[in-house]
Design a protein around this nucleic acid. Structure first.
Lengths: 187, 187
DNA sequence: GATATGCCATTATGATCGTCATGCGATACC
DNA sequence: GGTATCGCATGACGATCATAATGGCATATC
């Protein structure tokens, strides 16, 4: 029997708070763009206690990636969202302007393949998760878990459009990119 | 009249060597994944002379981004490449496996929007350049410089497919993503 | 050949990083 | 209420970073 010296679940709450705020901070500052002290400060703590919550920085990053993916799964691919809603949300100016609460693949994707195994795995799982969710929206009836070419191509275009739209220093062009992707996604 | 103490154009050659090797190093290690000393060492120098070539790190990074974009423009979008060749090269396993010599947008794109103005501008120009080149391949006759929706959507899918293909920890799935993007790009 | 000078190496500086050891205050159990 | 102990803060460590000053060597001119 483990004795709890703090309110039951207190540490878990703090742990979650660190992971959640980190998942946002990473999306807006980049995977290596924010330090442990800064991340802890955002969670209302100092850097001291960090290593009682995570073995190292990568462990937190990996958890934060997964948390971000779960957030998008809920907000964009939720059960009550139909395919057109999914496309409208993902391919929206609001998504472009707020990477902090947006898709982690579009925000940090190009860094994923360069990360240590632990973090890389989290990215890979996030990608497969998004593909599965999109497949379900495209083919709600089919019970199969396999991914169609249509899903793979559309997911690519969605991610690419957000990446490209954020890159071009030209709001009207960015809007046209989103629009073009929406059109070609729902032909 | 400027007196040259080293062989004429020597400094320019060294400058180019630093930029070229940096453009490769950044694509394989990330924008912030390699230090000035390491970058200079790759060019066969020590870090000492760095600031006689560039005002600061961002200036080198910006030049390296532009150099990488020019390399891809030549290797993938060269004048002798037809549209199917362009798609085959961009959406290939070889491209997936060798980001060092691949498209800078697919390798570093998600970091671009977070960079200081100088670097951001280089990314934005690289993106517009790729869009222009793709437009020309899609509509070789049209003299207009405007970008069609088709170009915007296809460019998005191409970039997204490479990003996604590199992310998933599963070679067969990555190949299917590339294939799906090729199919949907040349329907 | 002597000299002036451009180019790069050596070295230094201050800041910040990830990581870790230690200590204090708060809390749950007896 | 006393006490053991959990969670976090304080502070420190070595490493590494971007940046900068200085000096030596190689070379083009005379």
């Amino acid at each position: 029997m483990i004795v709890m010296r703090y309110p039951e679940g207190h540490k878990d709450e703090v742990h979650d708070r660190i992971v959640k705020s980190t998942s946002q901070a990473l999306r807006s500052h980049g995977l290596g763009g924010i330090s442990i002290p800064a991340l802890m400060k955002r969670a209302g703590l100092t850097h001291g206690g960090f290593y009682s919550h995570f073995p190292d920085r990568d462990a937190l990053v990996a958890e934060a990636i997964s948390a971000a993916a779960a957030e998008t799964a809920e907000h964009v691919f939720g059960d009550d969202q139909q395919l057109p809603d999914v496309l409208d949300r993902y391919l929206s100016r609001s998504h472009l302007d707020h990477p902090t609460h947006g898709c982690v693949l579009a925000a940090l994707g190009t860094d994923g393949a360069r990360q240590p195994a632990q973090v890389r795995r989290a990215f890979s799982e996030a990608a497969r998760g998004m593909l599965r969710l999109l497949e379900r929206k495209l083919h709600p009836k089919k019970p199969t878990a396999s991914l169609s070419d249509e899903t793979l191509a559309r997911a690519s275009m969605m991610i690419g459009a957000v990446v490209l739209g954020r890159l071009v220093n030209d709001a009207p062009l960015a809007d046209r990119i989103l629009e073009a992707a929406r059109k070609h996604s729902s032909d």
